[in-house]
């Protein structure tokens, strides 16, 4: 394994992590501020991807598609918040899980009803296609570099929004003591709606970006949702910074595990079984990481002490 390949894999891990962050940021905001477990977050991700794919197919503009993904997911978020989730804030987590799971089924079959069972076409816009030369002789896909940059930008903006704006102050206050800020005259239900719409919009945006390098199809959100939960548990619930660090940690652990574990096993067993054992262990690696983090820091890397 050359040094260049090692760095390329590191970059791949970083990129995967940033994609996970886009998904997890909304999830951790909603869970941290509103105390709501939203399993339907993956559906919002799917809505973003489908909105982007249909707008790109109709207009040919990827930028419009990205805007559409943001708007459509935020809109869907506002609707489900107002119609369904608002009734659940005072209920326990099990009720929230059941209702939001039902929402997954509704959105999945609803999307199939609208778009059919076949995957949609969504490709990277032409100016972003192809590869760029990086120092060290790495040819890296341009769009993946863009995802890294956009993801980090979103992280910075979110961090500033939460820590430097009035809305952010209210969000953080809502996280700490919702009765008190309601008593101080902040419209808590409006605040929750904004937070939920923001989380939904981020998920939709992630869906559109990821959908253009992967596949846009019904049910695409659920596998990512599981990883999203792993990320927010490792990062500490409600912490944007924690979600970013944890997402990158998970991305790099997963990518490096997939590449190096089979090689490591090959050093002392025959190639075929090394391959099988290595891949099997690699797929467990992030859960092992999560378990280890929870052993030493039960509330996650950046979580408040419970």
């Amino acid at each position: 394994m050359s040094v260049a390949l090692f760095f390329e894999q590191l970059l791949n891990g970083l990129q995967f992590g940033v994609m996970l962050f886009l998904m997890a940021a909304g999830l951790t905001l909603v869970f941290g501020v509103m105390g709501l477990i939203n399993l339907a977050h993956g559906s919002l991700y799917m809505i973003g991807a489908f909105a982007c794919a249909s707008v790109v197919a109709a207009t040919g503009s990827f930028t419009l598609g990205l805007v559409a993904s943001f708007v459509a997911a935020a809109f869907a978020g506002v609707i489900i918040e107002a119609l369904v989730l608002r009734r659940l804030y005072r209920r326990d987590h099990l009720d929230q899980v059941i209702v939001t799971f039902a929402l997954i089924l509704v959105f999945t079959e609803g999307t199939r009803w609208l778009f059919g069972s076949y995957p949609l076409y969504l490709d990277i816009p032409t100016p972003l296609q192809g590869t760029v030369h990086l120092p060290g002789g790495i040819d890296y896909p341009l769009f993946r570099l863009m995802i890294i940059l956009v993801g980090l930008l979103v992280a910075v903006l979110l961090f500033l929004a939460v820590n430097r704006t009035r809305l952010g102050v209210r969000i953080r206050a809502g996280e700490a003591d919702r009765e008190m800020i309601a008593a101080l005259g902040v419209d808590i239900s409006k605040l929750y709606m904004i937070v939920f719409a923001l989380g939904a919009a981020l998920a939709g945006f992630a869906g559109a970006l990821v959908g253009s390098v992967q596949s846009v199809q019904v049910g695409m959100g659920e596998p990512v949702l599981i990883l999203g939960f792993v990320v927010i548990v490792i990062g500490g619930i409600g912490s944007i910074g924690g979600a970013l660090i944890a997402a990158i940690l998970v991305g790099i652990t997963d990518t490096m595990g997939r590449v190096f574990l089979p090689m490591a096993f090959a050093a002392f067993t025959d190639p075929a079984s090394a391959n099988a054992t290595g891949s099997a262990l690699a797929s467990m690696l992030i859960y092992i990481l999560m378990a280890l983090v929870l052993v030493f820091r039960p509330s996650g890397l950046f979580g408040e002490k419970a």
Binding site: G13, Q15, M220, R258, A276
Partner: peptide, 12 residues
């Protein structure tokens, strides 16, 4: 290589 079932990112 054996990839993970349901894997969607193949950069590595």
């Amino acid at each position: 290589i054996y990839t993970q079932l349901g894997q969607t990112d193949y950069a590595a």
